[in-house]
Amino acid sequence: MKTQTSYALETKSVIKTYQSESGSINAVNDVSLQVKPGEFVALVGPSGSGKTTMLSILAALLKPTNGQVLLDGEDLAEMGDKERVIMRREKIGFTFQANNLVPYLTAVENVELMLRLNNKLDKVGKLRARELLSRLGLSERLHNLPGQLSGGQQQRVAIARALIHNPSLVLADEPTASLDTERAYQVVQTFASLIHEQNRAGIMVTHDLRMCEYTDRVLFMQDGNLVRSYTSKAEIMELARGGVH
């Protein structure tokens, strides 16, 4: 069922519980958040704070134990496996920490793959894939295999792939983890500007608080709870200057 909402993404009291030998653990505990189209949000927190679990739930890779996850008004928590695959394909763009690209496809083929999966690979789509990669500074690397690209170049190809099919939500899991500082800033800056330009909702999970500089909001998680939200630019810049968490 579709719910009317002005948010691209909205979660309501999301809980994810895991059973262990010592009892049940709430990896995500009653998290509610909203992200508007064109907003780039950072999800930060120490290890074990639940941010990766939250990202997996938002990516329709994991079902919450309780609560609602509304993407364009559709509740991911209510969906079956097949529907969630379709949502991932059509409405979500994803970049991962590593192993992002299909190793036997060239840069442009990796980007076009999202269009193929959505049955939208036509001349216009092919042109857009090339333009997007050129925009990301990869016009000379279109036909290179991932193994022939540097870590930063691979991340930029992954960003292009995450955006090419016009998803409502773009997710990035530690996109700068394997990059040097200069490359990391470049990647996040490009990511942020594309999200703003294309009016997508973007969420980035990072442990590197410096990268929050380019985000519109920072959500801080601890022990599965959303404990603080940094909304003003001044707060975010202060947090970013604080360095690595």
Binding site: R88, L113, M114
Partner: peptide
């Protein structure tokens, strides 16, 4: 050898 690669394919919406 390509567990991660298949994982990526599935994560971006490739059906089983």
């Amino acid at each position: 050898q390509k567990v991660a690669q298949i994982g990526v394919l599935k994560a971006i919406g490739t059906a089983n």
